[in-house]
């Protein structure tokens, strides 16, 4: 990243000081979520309840899953601009093939994860700019979605509907699901020995290659994981909305990038945080509509609110980084 990242690394400060600033930055996602929750509680105390959360966080699960998908791509210093239409495509397959002919449906979804892995390989081998490739793929997924489901409709498989409608005692399902997603991905990417290699490929690819690791393989794995979580996101989405539409996932591309960034991730350098990404997704899910509705902000401005949140968080981060030095 050209001059943008010049001079952001702390050179002379001690590890402790830098660690404190990094912790502060790490707390930013949690802090934004708490702020949004306080605002909601203040505007509408009744929303802070089992029922309220179930309702408000309704769409948080697919957003969180799409954010995790994007996070894997960003961990390898790439960007996926097709994740939204991919989620839409998966949704259409879920509402049609997966219900009517489960075996074929499963094969299609597995195949689409394979396509993601192939894209990773292609991007690595031909040294392609990921944003152009994924921008092209966004058309492919959208077209396939229309072919699968020309008109809005279809129906989610019953097992999926009942899964997403699950009502555990005390804690609303979306919260449990978010915790589960964060825990699983955190363990996989941050704690396992291969997770280290995956993150290292974003941190210093040359060093990794020098130590004998295959960058082709890390890229394939990262893209395949993105595909896997994209599939999960699309399925979860249809489990909630019950029927599909070829355009249903279009907004997720931007939401997912915003979620990763809100969650403390950086575009280069392999610095990502699964827990932060899930928190970022929850913040967006809450801020995007319930909060704004409670604030009587017209729906027109809800998209802008997402953009503004992104800018505010990035600005806050710049301020913290400046203090770091």
């Amino acid at each position: 990243m050209t001059i943008v990242s010049l001079g952001t690394s702390p050179k002379n400060s001690s590890a402790r000081g830098a660690a404190r600033a990094r912790m502060l930055r790490g707390l930013l996602p949690a802090l934004s979520l708490v702020l949004v929750l306080i605002a909601i509680a203040w505007l509408n105390p009744r929303a802070i309840s089992y029922f309220g959360f179930s309702l408000m966080l309704n769409l948080a699960i697919p957003i969180a899953l799409a954010t995790i998908a994007q996070m894997f791509v960003i961990a390898g210093n790439e960007l996926d601009l097709s994740i939204g239409t991919f989620v839409g495509f998966v949704g259409c397959v879920t509402a049609t093939w997966l219900k009517d002919a489960p075996l074929i449906g499963v094969l299609i979804l597995l195949g689409s994860i394979g396509v993601y892995a192939l894209l990773g390989a292609l991007i690595h081998l031909r040294n392609l700019p990921s944003i152009v490739v994924t921008l092209g793929m966004s058309f492919v997924w959208q077209g396939l979605a229309i072919l699968v489901l020309p008109k809005p409709g279809g129906k989610a498989p019953d097992w999926l509907l009942s899964l997403m409608a699950f009502k555990p005692p005390f804690i609303p399902f979306p919260i449990i699901a978010a915790l589960l997603i964060a825990a699983v991905v955190h363990f996989g990417l941050m704690r396992t020995s291969y997770g280290v290699i995956l993150r290292g490929s974003g941190g210093n690819a040359a060093a990794l290659e020098r130590a004998g690791w295959s960058l082709l393989r890390t890229r394939i794995v990262l893209f395949a994981l993105a595909g896997l979580f994209g599939v999960l996101s699309g399925m979860a989405l249809i489990g909630i909305t019950t029927s599909a539409d070829a355009n249903i996932g279009n907004g997720y591309t931007l939401l997912a990038i915003a979620g990763v960034i809100l969650g403390g991730g950086e575009f280069v350098g392999g610095r990502v945080s699964p827990i932060g990404a899930v928190l970022g997704a929850l913040t967006l899910a809450l801020a995007a509509s319930p909060l704004l509705t409670f604030m009587h902000i017209p729906p027109d401005w809800q998209v802008a609110a997402n953009g503004a949140i992104l800018i505010i968080v990035l600005a806050a981060r710049v301020l913290i980084s400046r203090r770091e030095r």
Binding site: V196, G200, G203, A207, G269
Partner: peptide
């Protein structure tokens, strides 16, 4: 040739394929 985003222990892991499990 350290990965700046990884910890000291994790950077050690990169040079030792057998450090796993």
């Amino acid at each position: 040739s350290l990965c700046p985003n990884l910890s000291v222990a994790e950077n050690t892991r990169i040079n030792h394929a057998s450090l796993s499990g």
